[in-house]
Design a protein around this nucleic acid. Sequence first.
DNA 1: TCAATACGCAACCACTGGTTGCATGAAATT
DNA 2: AATTTCATGCAACCAGTGGTTGCGTATTGA
Lengths: 114, 114
Amino acid sequence: MTVAGAVDDDLWSAIGDPTRRRLLDLLLLEEAGTATSLSQQLPVTRQAVAKHLGVLDRVGLVHGTPAGREKRYRVDDAQLARAVAQLASVGSAWDARLRRIKRIAEAIQVARQD
Amino acid sequence: MTVAGAVDDDLWSAIGDPTRRRLLDLLLLEEAGTATSLSQQLPVTRQAVAKHLGVLDRVGLVHGTPAGREKRYRVDDAQLARAVAQLASVGSAWDARLRRIKRIAEAIQVARQD
DNA sequence: TCAATACGCAACCACTGGTTGCATGAAATT
DNA sequence: AATTTCATGCAACCAGTGGTTGCGTATTGA
């Protein structure tokens, strides 16, 4: 099994952006949020957040429902769980390869220094 | 502890690119490689690979040493282990939050469908 | 009714992943 | 020794994207 499958690429690129990660963070904390409410807790404009919510919505990690004059976004738990699983999968694959080359011992020690 | 710390962003952006992930993959498999040798196993040009190796080198995930007319790159095991650890950390943080909202049960089942 | 607020669209800028083209330097061949 | 080959590096260029500002529109509430 190859670590970097083409299927996961959109998911990765969605999760790969720091602003989008923080967005998911906020949505997990607050259960729901609009572009403007979220933008107030981030160092970017409302429009930037709106674009990000757009790509997250397109990938399915988030779902937005119009509520009057505002559009409320929520995390799609199943999709995020799926994403987390893929994260873990890539990580463990690399980990396994590092371990297989038997240089993992010192590597872990150095990695624990931060 | 916040999931998306500013410190990790360069590491994430390095790992976030699909081509760079595949590059790391290849380097883990073959122990070492040059821009040209790696580009032959990827659907991108040698120059693109060279640029990617440049950013991976700058972040420290990879290290290139000149050997005659070619420049041989190897993975930095410690750094990659560190990166994998951060991957896992973000994943488990999200996982914990999903779990804490107690909707995790069905989410996992749906996620297992692929 | 009218002001405030939340959204969407469009134009614009900077950066980045990708390309092609060319120049340079080391290796190998004759 | 001279030449050809091969790997690298640099520069220009293009497309996509994260970010901004500006404006128009619709819903809410005074």
